[in-house]
Simulated scan of single mutants.
Amino acid sequence: MDLATLIGIVLSFGLVAAAIVTGGSPLIFISIPSMLIVLGGTIGATMVNYPLANILGLMGVIKKTFFSTLESPAEIIEKFMDYANRARREGILSLEPLLREIEDPFLRKGLQLTVDGLEPQTIEEIMETEISYLESRHEVGSEICSVLGAFAPAMGMIGTVIGLVQMLQTMSDPSTIGPAMAVALLTTFYGAVLANLVFIPMAGKLKTRSKEEVLRKEMILNGILSISKGENPRIIEEKLNSFLPPRERRQAE
């Protein structure tokens, strides 16, 4: 569980809810028509904008904002030092029994290609393609969240216009002015909350997660290529340490 995401959501919604409660009854901020306009309109417009497969896959992408299962760079370096020393002492084929124990599909595939004896250039081309498509998939998820963040306030404005039109048409009946004005204002409120507290922050977190994952993939690729070339374990360690900030680099050495 990513504590920053959890704390951010609890803090932001908690403070908004506290402000609502201290100002009066929270029930006045509940409007079914407003919710239908904002949620229905936002989801519908997004489905028009993207293929259904991308929309259905969004939940899997959003999980990355709450859960992070990435290995730390220091752990990756430690693994590759073990692989490099083993390959140097016993040969590349000594890595084959380890493949069954590796959970990361990217790392397992890279080592499998190395054990199979492919040229470093061929390995690099295959693995770089995987990284490229990984970035593309992550980019789509982030874009969808950004689009949701753009549509939500727009649908809120549409709801505001609907409420104002209803209010102006029934000015002769004072009892209808209040409900129509509530729809007008609450749709804007709902749209702003969804955009600025949910969708836009999620898009930013997904971009950060994507950069972190790509960095680790690049580290793994660099280590695999170094092993396939038979480089000295010390050189491999220095190459992988170059991916880390100086403080973490010293700890990993």
Rank of each mutant, 00 (worst) to 15 (best):
A4Q: 15
L6W: 14
G8P: 09
V10H: 01
S12T: 15
G14L: 06
G14C: 07
G14P: 11
G14S: 03
V16A: 02
F29S: 07
S31N: 15
S31E: 13
I32H: 04
L36P: 14
I37K: 07
G40Y: 08
G41N: 13
Y50C: 12
A53I: 14
I55N: 12
G57T: 10
L58P: 14
I62E: 11
A74Y: 12
Y83C: 01
A84W: 03
A87N: 11
A87K: 07
L93Q: 02
S94V: 11
E103I: 04
E103S: 08
K109Y: 14
V115I: 07
Q121V: 10
Q121R: 14
Q121T: 15
I123N: 04
E124P: 01
E128V: 10
E130T: 09
I131Y: 02
Y133N: 03
L134M: 15
R137L: 06
H138E: 12
L148H: 01
P153A: 00
M155W: 14
I158Y: 00
I158V: 13
G159C: 10
V161E: 01
I162N: 00
G163W: 02
L164D: 09
L168V: 15
T170Y: 09
A180F: 08
V183Y: 02
A184R: 00
T187N: 15
T188N: 09
A192T: 11
V198G: 00
F199L: 01
F199D: 13
I200W: 04
G204Y: 04
S210K: 12
V214Q: 02
L215H: 02
L215A: 06
I220A: 10
N222F: 03
R234E: 14
I236H: 05
I236N: 07
E237N: 15
E238T: 14
K239Q: 13
S242G: 12
P245W: 01
P245M: 08
E248K: 10
R250V: 15
A252K: 05
